[in-house]
Nucleic acid binder design. Structure first.
Length: 1143
RNA sequence: AGUCUCGUAGCUCAGUUGGUUAGAGCACUACACUGAUAAUGUAGGGGUCGGCGGUUCAAAUCCGCCCGAGACUACCA
């Protein structure tokens, strides 16, 4: 006696999830899946490192499901798929988390907390939620090696980064420069362009903006002003130039200052007149009082922008004297007349364009000199105006107007930077605006909503600020990067060509520097004058250089000489203590910058294997480039870019060949999930409630991964019911009967040719499915695969194959037909478990193991039963079993059945009522042939005795001719409409003519047109006297006559149905035999006489008797108790008592 | 502001190279079925395929403009 198939009371995906997880853990299923493929061809996968200092969300389940699906698929296909986990451990989020925990700001570092302690805190912070992440990884069934992850803060990892930076340095791709950069005073750091491009950084903010008046130096005009608009009035004290568009028309306008009512002349771009003056006030008298609504004006002169270039004006806010050459009008190619005044205020220290155009025109920036003699913009790094005491004494003496500047020194330029201020307080912008208003220098002050960049971590505004920085000259290899990108298979393609491609086209140099503490230090040491420098490319080199330094007496000990990397730390502050010696014997100090954390993650292909120190180039090539990576689309400019940049720059190669970038996971209303809205979905709760399989399946099947997913928990439940519920039912059905018959797949395979049509059909569909799913996975189209599997399970397997084959399982002897049915259904279930295993790894394994533990069809080398579906080979398509014609036939059968059922419904004829026949008009013998081979299925499904075919010649048919637009369209073009109309009106005779002759001539506007059979679709529309349904090219007629004999047959079936129901009510086993007594009725007597065998056979009845019921109940035969008597309603109006008992 | 993606039933999505009744599931309503039963079937309602224009004999499909959503880019005054 063999094993039994496991039977379950109900489907519990969460329990399956947990059981299988435990089973995997206990039996090392993941490790063994790797061992199994050792030595096979490798499929290289890179895990994008998450940062464990934040909690995982539901979108991480999405991204990781995608990764897992393809790694599992490739593993089934025979590849060795190493999956090394990784952790991103550097960067601002970590530092900010620490600052929050310790209640410090960056200014406290080194003062109130030692840099040492600070770094230690960072190390702890980095892995804050590691346990939670590991839990999610496991619970969602993501197979990745959590035991040996790469960690970006390890010395080995950093050493590889130094090596890579050295490569760039030696190729001349690394340089130090200064540019106006986005700078976050709140975070105290410059921001890279990809940080600035993090989603949500640009926000609409309401700021005070003003149009300021810059007084023209002129003898001719006493009160003439250029007017310029700014959204950042705090930059006005740093103004040193005005820019005009050389080809733009400007007007000189006599008018009044709206605040002071003084008469003035202003210059502005002609197209912008409307935003300051209304057409009607053109002729108003030149009189103006404060608060008048109408501002009168006269245009007195027009000129081109180039005529204005070179004009000088007075400094707007003469707080600080700049160098010579300031306060001139210059030409700027970026000036537009879309908004503002057509004249742009230029503050070279606070705008990238400003800086560029000022340099071109020889305009000096407005700079201060601090106590150390360094040139500084007017604003310091915390976002406030420098205090006078912080500045060089001589400079203050010669250049600063103490009286004016002292009112503003130390003020923050944005309230957000000042912990003492809120958004409601008066901002510096407003103060400056009010000051200028008093001085008759403000033409217009208003609140304005505009898009302004914010720091992605602190959420506070950024400033554009001049900073020293190290850059990677990515622009030098821009073309190569573009070229290599074309070889990458992007999913979706548009992300690669569009988003990523455009980004490469507009590439700027990569700003590598970060002024922070916790990160990879820039390995460059410089002499004080910057004339000599060295780039350290390994720990060994560092140690050697330190040796020289010790010899020179600059250092006392060498902490970096150990071979054991646990004995030292390459991080700040330790590395800052290293002083090296230049070739000329001068001290060299490390450049204090850290490098961009994105460099960390972009370098992971090399750093995870500690290239080139513990890994040769040949070994590296075994793990590079990746065959496949996947992350959210938000990584396009992040990880995807840095991987691509480093691999191109250093190795002249792509870093990945295939990439799937998945979309965002939104809430069910399409809103972004955020803590603020509280609409986030907790992944642990979802997995706990519905299991990882349903969650994963929902995410993958609902929409393409690169579309945004509107996550609706109802959808997960629907997947549970529709897919897993159906599949579970199908398995349960199989298990129930297979256990009764002890089917263990021990018999030889029934020959394909000997299997019934329906078995051959489902096997054909199954093989088509394998092919479809295989190619979908292979093309990184998981949605297509999931939908195909779902459709097969629901439509084909459950609702057609099992439904039609039920009798084969529960009736009769253990014949070849029955074995064929078992084998076929078993095969389907087994293959489904394999096909679905990448997406639903737990459920698939449960299903597979439940099957295989009985049959042991899959065995390991040691002849024991194989221990997981994930250890099998992906099913192979058997093309011999694919029979397209058969698939079509079955589709036809399904359609005809559905039509007949529909006819029954309309005519109120229950399926249990047998009917005599259906009639189907057929255009040709081929069609008859097709239907004949599925005839039995149709007849039994719709409970009809026979199918009659009506030949086209049959003249009772009413037919309709329709134009075949596809063939006629190209031939007749404009005449199409007339032809179509004419065909629709064709008489029955004329239609017969086409059928007989194979062609017909019709007359369109006097022109004779020949139409062939192929140009015309002829459809039977009606058969007079019959109930008819017509769909597409199929027509079905139903004979609705119910004869006496058909009625009796119906009664017999009703009776079987009632007896079965009672059996079930009484909880009899399906194998129990019964005795049945029914109250006498003449109609029944005849029926039972005729159908006794059928009834008793169906219901396992030993004795079936009709009993006359007298006036009292005592006449019931036998000794059965009264309670077992039920009443049944056999057919309408006849209610009888029935008594059923077990034998 | 620009670039890209998208807009089909109340909801989630299909819809081949343009071809004439625009589909499925969910939800809703009614009816049926019932040794798979917390399953299933049939029928029904529900769509000017975002809008307008164009190309074409023929447009959900191709083109242009506009509206709306999202992502990305952006020094934007």
């Amino acid at each position: 006696m063999g094993k039994k198939y496991q039977e379950y009371k109900q489907l519990d995906l969460t329990a399956i999830n947990k059981d299988i997880f435990k089973y995997w853990e206990e039996n090392n299923i993941f490790e063994n899946s790797l061992k199994l493929r050792q030595g096979s061809k490798e499929f290289i996968f890179y895990e994008g490192p998450p940062s464990a200092n934040g909690q995982p969300g539901i979108h991480h389940v999405m991204a990781r499901a995608i990764k897992d699906i393809f790694c599992r698929y490739k593993s089934l296909k025979g590849y060795y798929v190493a999956r090394k986990a990784g952790w991103d451990t550097h960067g601002l989020p970590v530092e900010l988390g620490v600052e929050k925990n310790l209640g410090i700001t960056k200014e406290d570092i080194g003062k109130n907390i030692s840099v040492d302690d600070y770094n230690a805190a960072c190390r702890a912070e980095v892995m804050k939620y590691k346990d939670l992440w590991d839990r999610l990884t496991k619970e969602m069934g993501y197979w990745v090696d959590l035991e040996n992850p790469y960690i970006t803060f390890k010395n080995e990892y950093i050493e590889t980064l130094w090596f890579l930076i050295g490569e760039l340095y030696n190729k001349g791709l690394l340089y130090k420069g200064y540019t106006i950069q986005p700078f976050s005073p709140a975070a105290g750091t410059g921001l890279s362009s990809h940080e600035l491009n993090m989603p949500g950084c640009y926000k609409d903010v309401k700021d005070t903006t003003m149009v300021a008046q810059f007084k023209i130096k002129s003898d001719e005009y006493k009160e003439a002003y250029f007017i310029a608009w700014t959204t950042t009035p705090w930059t006005l004290p740093s103004n040193t130039a005005l820019a005009v568009g050389t080809n733009i028309d400007y007007v000189w306008v006599d008018t009044f200052n709206p605040y002071s009512a003084k008469p003035i002349t202003i210059i502005l771009g002609k197209p912008l007149m409307n935003s300051f003056f209304s057409e009607e006030s053109k002729d108003s008298p030149m009189e103006y009082n404060q608060n008048d609504k109408v501002l009168p004006y006269r245009v007195i002169k027009e000129c081109k922008g180039k005529e204005l270039v070179g004009m000088e004006y007075e400094q707007l806010l003469p707080w600080v004297k700049p160098q010579e050459g300031a306060f001139r009008v210059i030409g700027g190619d970026f000036v537009t007349t879309d908004d503002g005044t057509g004249i742009v205020h230029i503050a070279p220290t606070f705008g990238a364009d400003d800086d560029r155009v000022a340099k071109q025109s020889g305009i000096p920036p407005l700079v201060l000199i601090d106590k150390e003699g360094k040139r500084q913009p007017m604003v310091d790094r915390s976002g406030k105006f420098f205090k006078i005491e912080e500045l060089d004494n001589d400079f203050v003496e010669n250049n600063i107007n103490r009286e004016l500047y002292s009112q503003f020194e130390g003020k923050y330029v944005k309230n957000a930077f000042d912990s003492k201020l809120t958004e409601k307080d008066i901002s510096l912008d407003i103060e400056i605006a009010l000051l200028l208003k008093q001085e008759n220098k403000a033409f217009k002050i208003e609140k304005h909503i505009h898009n302004y960049p914010h720091c992605w971590r602190t959420d506070k505004p950024i400033l554009y600020y001049p900073l020293d920085s190290w850059f990677i000259r990515t622009t030098a290899l821009k073309d190569r990067m573009i070229e290599l990108n074309k070889t990458i298979n992007w999913k979706p393609e548009s992300t690669g060509t569009g988003r990523f491609g455009n980004w490469l086209e507009n590439l700027v140099d990569w700003n590598l520097s970060r002024s922070r503490y916790w990160g990879t230090p820039l390995p460059i040491w410089r002499t004080e004058d910057g004339k000599e420098e060295i780039c350290i490319t390994s720990v060994e080199m560092l140690s050697n250089e330190i040796g020289k330094s010790i010899a020179k007496g600059y250092m006392e000990e060498n902490k970096y000489s150990s071979k054991d990397y646990n004995n030292f730390d390459l991080h700040r502050p330790y590395i800052d203590d290293v002083i090296l010696v230049s070739s000329k014997g001068e001290k060299m100090i490390r450049e204090t910058d850290l490098i961009d954390v994105w460099f960390d993650s972009g370098a992971m292909p090399y750093a995870q294997v500690h290239y080139p120190f513990e890994c040769s180039e040949n070994e590296l090539k075994k793990n590079f480039p990746a065959d496949f990576i996947a992350e959210g689309v938000d990584q396009t400019r992040g990880w995807f870019f840095t991987l691509h940049a480093i691999s191109t720059l250093v190795f002249d190669s792509v870093a990945f060949k295939n990439v799937v970038s998945n979309g965002l996971v939104l809430d069910k209303n399409g809103n972004k999930m955020s803590k603020r809205l509280g609409n986030g979905v907790n992944p642990f709760e979802v997995i706990e409630k519905y299991g990882a399989d349903a969650t994963r399946w929902y995410m993958v099947s609902n929409s393409q991964p690169w579309e945004n997913l509107k996550f609706d928990i109802e959808g997960v439940d629907e997947v549970r019911r529709k897919l897993f519920g159906t599949l579970y039912n199908t398995y349960s059905f199989f298990a129930l009967y297979a256990n009764i018959d002890s089917f263990e797949y021990k018999e030889a395979e029934i020959n394909y040719e000997e299997r019934p049509e329906i078995d051959r059909w489902i096997l054909s569909e199954l093989n088509s499915l394998i092919k479809m799913v295989d190619s979908s996975y292979n093309e990184y189209e998981p949605t297509r695969a999931a939908r195909a599997i779902g459709n097969f399970v629901d439509e084909y397997l459950s609702n057609w194959y099992v439904r039609l084959c039920r009798r084969r399982f529960w009736k009769g002897e253990y014949t070849n037909d029955k074995i064929s049915a078992y084998q076929t259904l078993y095969t389907c279930l087994e293959v489904i478990s394999q096909l679905m295993s990448p997406i639903a790894p737990f459920f698939a394994d449960r299903l597979f193991l439940d099957l295989n533990n009985v049959t042991r069809r899959y065995k390991s080398n040691d002849n024991s039963s194989i221990s997981s579906v994930h250890h099998t080979d992906f099913p192979k398509v058997d093309e011999k079993l694919q029979d397209k014609a058969l698939e079509e036939r079955m589709q036809l059968a399904q359609k005809i059945c559905s039509m007949v059922l529909s006819l029954r419904k309309r005519n109120n004829l229950k399926v249990r009522q047998p009917l005599q026949k259906i009639m189907i008009p057929t255009p040709n013998q081929e069609f008859i042939f097709q239907i004949e081979s599925v005839e039995k299925l149709i007849l039994s499904e719709v409970n009809v005795k026979k199918i009659e075919f009506l030949s086209p010649q049959n003249n009772i048919l009413i037919k309709k001719a329709k134009a075949n637009f596809k063939t006629l369209g190209p031939k007749y073009g404009q005449k199409m409409k007339a032809i179509a109309l004419s065909l629709e009106q064709l008489s029955q005779d004329r239609i017969s003519e086409i059928e007989r002759d194979g062609k017909i001539y019709i007359d369109i506007n006097g022109e004779k047109i020949e139409l062939l059979t192929s140009d015309v679709d002829i459809v039977t529309q009606d058969i007079p006297g019959w109930v008819v349904l017509n769909e597409g090219n199929i027509t079905v007629a139903l004979d609705t006559t119910i004869t006496e004999s058909l009625l009796r047959e119906a009664i017999a079936r009703e009776l079987v149905n009632r007896i079965q129901n009672i059996r079930k009510d009484k909880n009899f086993e399906i194998t129990d035999f019964i005795n049945v007594e029914i109250e006498y009725n003449s109609l029944l007597e005849q029926t039972i006489e005729e159908y006794r065998d059928y009834i008793t056979g169906e219901t396992l009845t030993q004795e079936l008797s009709l009993v006359r019921k007298s006036d009292n109940f005592s006449l019931f035969m036998g000794n059965h108790k009264m309670e077992s008597v039920s009443k049944i309603d056999v057919i309408e109006g006849i209610e009888l008592e029935i008594n059923i008992s077990k034998v």
